[in-house]
Amino acid sequence: MQQFAASVIVTLRQNIADVQGKTIEDGLHSLGFMQIRNVRVGKFFHFSVQAASEEEARQIVEQACVKLLANPVIEDFSISLTPEEAEVSEL
């Protein structure tokens, strides 16, 4: 059994107006950051997953995203995994 550090980013789907992102972009522009465009706001989750392989860990995290962390009707998610040392072996 391996342990992975999972990072999940959930954002509104591209075709849905992100009014919060637009408001922040307007704020950045009024501060002079004219180079910045297409601001999207999202949620960030970080947690550990125990699984036999990275592939299995990814499947677990994907299921967690579809079932709870994201609402597939309105949100997309991206997952990144990195191997980490298990803190305490509980298994």
Binding site: A17, V19, N71, V73
Partner: peptide
């Protein structure tokens, strides 16, 4: 009810924030 999928669609943050 939308989160429980008893009704279709979703409710987003108001356009005015």
């Amino acid at each position: 009810l939308t989160e429980a999928q008893l009704l279709p669609g979703a409710l987003l943050q108001n356009a005015s924030l």
